[in-house]
Simulated assay, not measured.
Amino acid sequence: MWTIPKPRYGSRGQGEITVNIGGVRVALCGDVLKRYPESRLAQLAKLAKCSSAQNEPLLASLCDDFDLGRGEFYFDRDPDAFRCIVDGYYAGQIHIRGGICPVCFVEELHFWKMEQGALDECCKSYLSEKEGELREIAGKVKAILEDAELERGATSGAGSYQRFQSFLWRLIEKPDSSLGARLVAVASFLFVLLSAAVMCAGTLPELQVSVGEDGGPGEARPRAEHPALEAMETACMSWFTAEYLLRLASSPDKWRFALSFLNLVDLVAIAPFYLVLALTYLGTASVLELARAQQAVQAHRGLGHCGWRQLFAQAIQQRPTELTDKLEATGVGWAATST
């Protein structure tokens, strides 16, 4: 057991109060408690100085019980967490000791009316990491509950279309739900790699072909991707398009799906390919200009795979500043290579 400092019941110091936290008695100096004047203990010490019958209702609102004759105030709280908080009054910063649940400690801070800004910097980072882990766990639990709700809806009086919709949603969006879903996820990932490889290979002059008519003297003929690369690119975009449409068709909430940020990114990544085809058919732009416009959006296509989309969302939540810096650097690289 511990005491900070050892209580003196016979001759109490000026402004000193004794608190009993879960059976552990601690004597506290009122001057030290003034470090955080808005805290529960500081308010208690201020009222204890001028104890009277009028102050008893206020004292009762600040503690679980009290004995004015002994000058002792009782709290049914965690003594280990309280020790960390008391150290903050003496040291100026609160440090979370090992073995204390961070969620419970935040509740203790709120009870004692202490701000999280009083925590040591290392403890602030520790709490942020734990809060992120808890949000991730909560998201997984929510996803499991949604899957269970879809499963119940698909098996309890639902028609064949609803059952097929639920099956298709799990097949495309839940890689861990079945062997078929894993195979679909692997296939999507392979198409992502193939699309990236085609994008890189299309920039090599050895794999480009000349298009259009001969230019004037000293002018080089325009060059475009090799037809074989275009065929592979078309196959990749056909897979991404089919995947997006199937996900949209099987989504339980189509408006929410369509307006989701990452799904909008998927749509923006797919749409330019068909814009290029339309402009080529209409003959409103040169092949070279269309190829450059298409290359400007090819880097987004990796987000078409559900696993890449989840990693991207986690990166935004956990490291927003670092991700912004990296995206800025990537944007400068794109601008340099496209000119």
Rank of each mutant, 00 (worst) to 15 (best):
C29R: 15
E72C: 03
D31P: 00
S51T: 07
Q54F: 06
Y126G: 08
Y36S: 10
D80I: 13
L47T: 02
D78Y: 01
D120H: 11
G30P: 02
I94R: 02
L28M: 05
A45T: 07
A91E: 15
E121I: 11
A81M: 12
H95S: 13
N55G: 10
G88Y: 06
V19Q: 00
E129P: 09
V86F: 01
S61N: 04
E115G: 12
G99Q: 09
G92Q: 04
E115T: 10
E108F: 14
G98L: 07
A42I: 06
G15S: 04
Y36T: 15
K34M: 14
D65S: 10
L134R: 04
Y89G: 04
L44V: 09
L33E: 05
E131N: 13
C29K: 05
E133K: 12
E133S: 13
R70H: 09
G98A: 13
R35Q: 02
E56Q: 06
A42T: 14
G23V: 00
P79D: 01
E38S: 11
A45E: 04
R97W: 07
A53F: 15
A53S: 13
Q93R: 05
P102C: 07
K130S: 05
G99L: 05
E16S: 03
L28W: 00
S51L: 05
A27M: 14
E115K: 14
C104I: 10
V106P: 06
C84Y: 06
I137E: 12
P102D: 00
A138H: 11
R77E: 00
V26M: 08
C104A: 13
A48E: 03
F75P: 00
C84D: 11
Y126D: 10
Y90Q: 13
Q116Y: 04
I100S: 05
L62M: 01
E16R: 06
G98Y: 02
V103C: 11
N20R: 02
V26N: 04
S61M: 06
E121W: 09
C63Q: 04
L119S: 06
Y74P: 02
A91S: 14
P57F: 07
S39I: 15
K113S: 06
H95Q: 11
A60Y: 01
E38R: 13
V86N: 08
K34H: 14
E121G: 05
D87V: 04
S51Q: 03
L127T: 11
S125K: 14
C101I: 07
E131Q: 15
L62A: 04
E107L: 15
C123K: 12
Y74V: 07
C29D: 11
L119R: 08
V19L: 03
L58A: 14
I85D: 08
L119G: 06
I21Y: 10
F111M: 09
E129G: 11
L33T: 05
G23L: 02
L119Y: 00
N55A: 14
D67H: 02
K34Q: 15
E115L: 13
A81C: 07
L47K: 02
K34T: 03
D31H: 12
L47P: 04
K124H: 07
E16V: 05
E121K: 10
Y90A: 09
C29V: 12
S51K: 10
G15A: 09
R35P: 00
A60E: 11
